[in-house]
């Protein structure tokens, strides 16, 4: 097939240069993502859990098995995420599992990733996102759909100070600009 375009290619240089004090921003241009709609607790949901080898998580949680993650989006909706290139096999696996009781949609191009990590990652998010990321309120394995100012994002905490943001490609530059600006301000604060 032809080459794919990285949604944030134009900002890559600035994103690379934004790192400070161990806090970094990285693009994750391609992620296999499959939208799953299925009635929770149904036989179809059970078959999905068997097929994926994980329990479909409850509200604002993620569960993981063998490199695949199911991220809660809504009471009957999850985003199943895997390494780039797995989308086709994942769709087939899930289609077979739901057997017509629900919906499986390839959304791999519908969102692109930004990974923010490091000691100031939480504060960077606090410059542009109203959600509470304090360890008492949000921790590894948790996720939320929320806003970075006017753009919707799916935030998943991947480690103690590591966050993956999945964003519609047309909003990715806007979100990146907010994160870059937050990092710029905190970098100046850290230097003072």
């Amino acid at each position: 097939m032809a080459d794919r375009a990285e949604p944030l290619a134009a900002l890559q240089g600035r994103i690379n240069d934004a790192a400070f004090g161990g806090t970094t921003l990285m693009t994750v241009p391609f992620v296999a993502q499959v939208g799953l709609r299925v009635e929770p607790g149904s036989a179809a949901a059970g078959r999905v859990e068997t097929a994926l080898g994980l329990e479909l998580p409850e509200v604002n949680r993620m569960s993981e098995s063998g490199g695949r993650r199911a991220i809660w989006l809504a009471p009957d909706e999850w985003l199943v995420v895997a390494a780039d290139g797995e989308e086709r096999s994942l769709v087939a696996l899930l289609e077979e599992a739901i057997a017509g009781e629900g919906s499986v949609v390839d959304l791999s191009a519908n969102r692109t990733g930004l990974e923010l990590a490091g000691p100031d990652a939480r504060t960077v998010l606090a410059t542009c996102c109203s959600l509470d990321f304090h360890p008492r309120a949000f921790g590894p394995g948790q996720c939320a759909q929320t806003l970075i100012h006017k753009a919707g994002v799916l935030v998943e905490q991947r480690g103690d100070d590591r966050y993956l943001l999945l964003v519609r490609p047309s909003f990715a530059a806007y979100v990146a600009e907010w994160l870059l600006d937050g990092m710029l301000g905190l970098k100046a604060d850290a230097a003072a």
């Binding site: 509200v59 604002n60 809504a74 109203s130 959600l131 939320a144 929320t146």
Partner: peptide, 10 residues
């Protein structure tokens, strides 16, 4: 009732 308390712009 599903996601918990969030700010109004959401």
């Amino acid at each position: 009732p599903y996601c918990g308390p969030r700010d109004e712009p959401e």
